[in-house]
Simulated assay, not measured.
Amino acid sequence: MKIYYLVAILFLFSAFAKAQDSTTVEVPRIYAKAFQGESTYIEGATVRLVKVLEDSRCPKGVDCIWAGNAKVAVEIISESGKKVTKEITLGGGPVAPIYLQDDLKVLIKGLAPYPSSLSKIKASDYYLQVEVSN
Rank of each mutant, 00 (worst) to 15 (best):
V72A: 05
L104H: 01
Y99F: 13
I77C: 10
T89N: 09
V84R: 09
A70N: 07
K86W: 12
P97H: 02
T85P: 14
I98W: 02
S56K: 11
G61N: 12
D55G: 02
V95M: 14
G92D: 08
A70L: 03
P59S: 00
V50M: 09
N69C: 07
G91E: 06
D103I: 01
V47L: 14
A70T: 11
L100T: 13
P94R: 06
L104Y: 00
D55W: 03
P97K: 06
P94N: 09
A73W: 07
E87H: 12
G91V: 05
G61A: 10
D55N: 12
A70S: 11
K51A: 08
N69Y: 13
G93I: 10
T85V: 15
L49K: 12
C64I: 03
W66N: 11
A96R: 14
V50I: 04
A70M: 08
I88C: 03
E75C: 06
V95C: 12
T85I: 15
A96S: 14
E79W: 11
G68V: 14
L53I: 09
W66S: 04
Q101G: 02
Q101P: 06
N69K: 09
V62W: 00
I76C: 12
V50N: 06
R48D: 05
L90V: 11
G68F: 08
S80Y: 10
V50R: 01
R48M: 08
S78V: 15
V72M: 09
N69W: 05
G81P: 10
P97L: 06
D55K: 04
L100E: 15
I65A: 15
L49R: 13
L90K: 05
E75A: 13
A70E: 09
D63H: 04
R48F: 00
V72S: 03
K60V: 07
V84S: 07
V62T: 10
V52Y: 00
R48V: 08
C58G: 06
D103M: 11
E79L: 10
G93W: 11
L49P: 13
D102P: 03
K51D: 11
I98R: 00
G68P: 15
A67Q: 14
T89L: 07
K71G: 14
D103G: 01
E54K: 00
I98F: 01
K60H: 06
S56W: 13
K83A: 13
Y99A: 06
K83D: 08
K82W: 07
D103V: 03
E87L: 14
T85A: 15
R57Q: 02
K51Q: 03
L100P: 04
N69G: 04
R48P: 00
W66H: 08
N69I: 07
K71F: 14
S80C: 12
L90Q: 01
I76Y: 11
K86T: 10
L53V: 11
K83Q: 07
L90P: 03
P94E: 08
L100H: 03
R57E: 04
